[in-house]
Design a protein around this nucleic acid. Sequence first.
DNA 1: ACTTGAAGTTGACGTAGCGTCAACGACTAC
DNA 2: GTAGTCGTTGACGCTACGTCAACTTCAAGT
Lengths: 250, 250
Amino acid sequence: MSWSINEVARAAGVTSRTLRHYHAIGLLEPAWTADGGRRFYEQEQLLRLQRILLLRELGLGLDAIGEVLAAQDGASAVEVLRRHRAWLLAERARLDRLVVTVESTMTTLEKGGTMTVNSMFAGFEQNPYEEEARSRWGDLAVDDATARMRRWSADQAAQAREGFGAALAALAALRADGVPVDDPRAQDVVDGHYRWVCLFWTPDRDAYRGLADLYVDDDRFRQNIGQGDDALVEYLRDAMKAYADSRLGQ
Amino acid sequence: MSWSINEVARAAGVTSRTLRHYHAIGLLEPAWTADGGRRFYEQEQLLRLQRILLLRELGLGLDAIGEVLAAQDGASAVEVLRRHRAWLLAERARLDRLVVTVESTMTTLEKGGTMTVNSMFAGFEQNPYEEEARSRWGDLAVDDATARMRRWSADQAAQAREGFGAALAALAALRADGVPVDDPRAQDVVDGHYRWVCLFWTPDRDAYRGLADLYVDDDRFRQNIGQGDDALVEYLRDAMKAYADSRLGQ
DNA sequence: ACTTGAAGTTGACGTAGCGTCAACGACTAC
DNA sequence: GTAGTCGTTGACGCTACGTCAACTTCAAGT
């Protein structure tokens, strides 16, 4: 007993194009072909097709499906499924985060906000300054910033901290050498900081000057950045202001 | 102040190829181009790029992003986001179901099962026969079947019930006319039933005969199928057995 | 003036999993 | 003979770019 391609397709709930595709990539060969190339399938092929479709519903790619079906031992098939399960869980977690962010963005828009990402707090994984910030810049900016923070993965945050730390170390060395803040070398470092801040937020001249002041004026920022070296934070502030004046449009 | 394509790319964390792509599809035009076609971007374009990347992180497609950014009023932008949120939630729910099924499949494989989908219960959304079935066919088949059931969407199940109901009505009419079970007209209806069962499971001759007996022997199946008309269920059983004998290979 | 290197350009193909024509062949029914 | 149905093999299209390949432009060094 054999079935034509369309009979199989109807029974399995796929199109004949799909079966031809599976044949083309070697995933499911017909039992035999008549003259003119017409494909015919038998019980064995239907069984294989069912397994294919089951795995496809699980979200595996066709090549992964081929691997599973080619695996002689159940163990390696289980291994493929285990990896796939991990991927599914990661995807679900990502979607969870996306839902939160979409909702936050919708709220911002409904309040009349503009979707600009305002992160004054770039470089700090947790944001212990939220209260302070709310009184200083209002709720919308903070909501944006914290929502964006939440989306960071751990290694992104680590990379961000690293970039900030490297810039600070370079600045400390320049200051130790007595290099003035408007020296090209110092300005180069600040340029790196500016571009890094731009990953989250693109401040104009005044905003960047305000950020520089914030770094010094706020005890917790100053402490967190300078680790006790207040003069370094002031050096950074002055360099940032010089950069803002010379490189950022009004 | 303007930036070259690579400066923008580094600042935004994308590649220059991406920016060229956005230009090509009209999502982000450079501020101006020099001779030779080199692209230059200014503050305004960076702002737009940030919004693009924010929306991209939310998982929107580039065309949807274009819609949001083109929307003059916040309301229509929110509408796009609302649809996207619904899509995200649906995707997450789908992944939830997939995780469950993958885990069940892994368990089956580890127990030495063969991943064949065995659904004796095709046509019933809920499966009140689980206990009975476990004693009759063992745990593996039931796990498979219930896992597969859980994955059905509501409208798939409704469509399945409808198909079954239509076949039954046709059979009832034939029986009322005194048509024998091996008449081509009755066999045609059973052929439809067989193909429909194949959506979930491809029984061989013995399995299909077993299914026919099950329909009559089990009180709850018989009641559910015949709605009190036991003779109709017996007619179905005999027609199915005739079909199995004549059309299904041993 | 010449070379070299860096950075830019356009064009094209590749990715996954088929959908969707187009153009044609084979078989059945009337 | 002809219409209709079912099949075939290409081939292009879809997302969001990655990745060559083949050139051009521009500034710096010799």
